[in-house]
């Protein structure tokens, strides 16, 4: 009887631990998602490829998190102007303008315009739905006291099989490391500062260091780095027509 009680106690405790885990991740998601309104922003992106120079892009991002939709429209450079992405639920289309104007199905896992960002970086945050916590620790990250959460994906279609978050007491992710299933570090993302906006938090600047891509210059391996910042923030309602292929067709160049 005692054994059964102990077993029940352990099961209840593990359930409570799992709930607590989900709760932490849900709080992290809630800080950066807009489930009760639309969200729009302009992203200034700078991609540095060692030995190849710097590429700068400006992107308009329109999100309707409650319906799992987003549209990204490239505003600069001139050669990419009018390209775009449309995500509706699980469908993600890339609208290309050169050599012909056409929609192709693409993956959230794919690199955004061959940069170090992934298409999934621009959706709402879904750590609670996609990952489980397998380990926690406390660590000093520069001037921040952080909890380090080691996560494993609970489904195969998640962009990164394993990820590690450095989270401050205000439930903001300051640093993130993404790993392959085999444990290979793929990239490191730093978000040291946030801007508070309508009760949510948007990183002032995101720096993504690709662990695999880069070039050896003067004997030193230099990683590819993509940095972006988000400005012109708004939660004004967006017309539904934005989340259609016709909107991208209309804005094609």
């Amino acid at each position: 009887m005692k054994r059964i009680l102990v077993l029940c106690g352990l099961l209840l405790a593990s359930g409570a631990y799992a709930d607590a885990n989900t709760d932490i991740l849900a709080k992290i998601d809630a800080q950066v998602s807009f489930m009760d309104s639309d969200f729009s922003t302009e992203i200034e992106m700078k991609e540095t490829k060692p030995g190849e120079g710097v590429t700068e892009r400006t992107i308009a991002l329109f999100r309707r998190d409650s319906e799992e939709k987003y549209v990204m429209l490239l505003l600069k450079p001139e050669s990419d102007k009018g390209k775009g992405y449309l995500k509706i639920g699980n469908n993600l289309w890339l609208y290309e303008t050169v050599p012909t104007r056409r929609f192709t199905v693409t993956s959230a896992k794919d690199r955004f315009q061959n940069s170090n960002a992934r298409n999934s970086d621009f959706t709402r945050s879904t750590f609670a739905e996609d990952y489980k916590i397998v380990a926690t620790a406390h660590e000093k990250l520069g001037s921040f006291d952080t909890t380090v959460l080691s996560l494993e994906a609970i489904r195969d279609d998640i962009t990164f099989a394993k990820t590690k978050l450095w989270v401050t007491a205000d439930n903001l992710v300051r640093k993130k490391e993404d790993y392959s299933l085999s444990g290979q570090l793929l990239r490191t993302t730093a978000m040291p500062s946030y801007q508070e906006f309508k009760g949510r938090y948007i990183p002032k600047k995101v720096t993504i260091v690709d662990a695999l891509l880069g070039k050896t210059l003067n004997g030193v391996f230099k990683n590819e780095v993509t940095e972006y910042s988000m400005g012109k923030l708004s939660t004004d309602p967006l017309p539904s027509i934005i989340f259609t292929q016709s909107y991208l067709e209309k804005n094609s160049q």
Binding site: L141, G142, S143, F144, P192, K204, T207, D210, L233
Partner: peptide
């Protein structure tokens, strides 16, 4: 040279967003 640690030594403090413009 893949470290981002230097970004956390003296980070810009969190602040209110500028909401004067929208895309």
């Amino acid at each position: 040279d893949d470290s981002t640690d230097s970004l956390f030594t003296n980070p810009e403090p969190d602040s209110k967003a500028d909401t004067t413009q929208k895309v």
